[in-house]
Amino acid sequence: MPIISARGLSKTYRVADKQPGIGGTLRHFFARRSRDVQAVSEVSFTIEPGEIVGFLGPNGAGKTTTLKMLTGLIHPSAGEVEVAGCAPFRRQAGFLRQITLVMGQKQQLIWDLPPLDSLRVNAAVYGIDDAEAKRRIDELAGMLDLGEELTRPVRKLSLGQRMKAELLAALLHRPAILFLDEPTLGLDVNAQARVREFLADYNRRHGATVLLTSHYMADITALCRRVLLIHQGKLFYDGSLDGLTERLAPHREVRFELRDPPPAAAFASYGAFESQDGQQLRLLVPRSELTATVSRLLADFDVLDLEVSDPPIEEIIGRLFRQGAVS
């Protein structure tokens, strides 16, 4: 029995078409044109309780719009959506108690007060009694490694501390479903890792369902066994992360430095030549031939340095969409 199900979910915005500047405004005033922007179109998927699902796609692909439809902030233009057995856009109290939405750039904590004050408000709003609230705060604070930060005004906290406090506030009512929009945006690497560990831990302890978007591939690889890939409002891929990497990035990138690099053509038999910058070269090599190719390179050339990496997910996705390889 899926906890989230979307069928043919679509959202169209009507946007007025206006040229910039005064001329545009005047022209627009006399002959108003507007066009429909299809932010999300015909998206269908289901998510089972306890899953952690990554939601991927380039900027403006419709990720946030979809999250807002799933939380009930936006009314879908077409299609059906059911979350925890409710129609989200009705925003009934029973539904709201089961979900939470965390947006990396938006904050709900009261800026000039310590997080503890905002937590007290949330406890009252969600009807959690004081003793229980204290117990939950202690538990979550322990998991998030938050201590005296909770008694300092939010404005005095670092971005990472603030994000952790936001998560605490968002999870105090112990929601069964977490919608996370870029929860690690702007955090330093340590803080990102901390948030990631926390989410995995929370999922394990409470069996919560998590749907998360992130620009950082590390978030996705660490947390999600399944990903949804969305582009221009359409769902392109729904499956395991491994499958996605296989499908999207059958190549790995080999970067190496040569003492005396020959012309680019010399590498044709090793892999797809990508770029050269002085002594630095980059090749794309099929995964299956990686080991063989690397040993050949080491044997054939005077290699100073060599590094193998997965191209960044943004790059993979970008290349993929340019090639139109997925349809």
Binding site: K68, T71, A93, L96, K106, Q108, N122, V125
Partner: peptide, 13 residues
């Protein structure tokens, strides 16, 4: 404008 209304709307108050 700042989007602070959205989180409020997701709370049962």
């Amino acid at each position: 404008l700042q989007g602070r209304l959205s989180p409020y709307l997701l709370q049962p108050l």
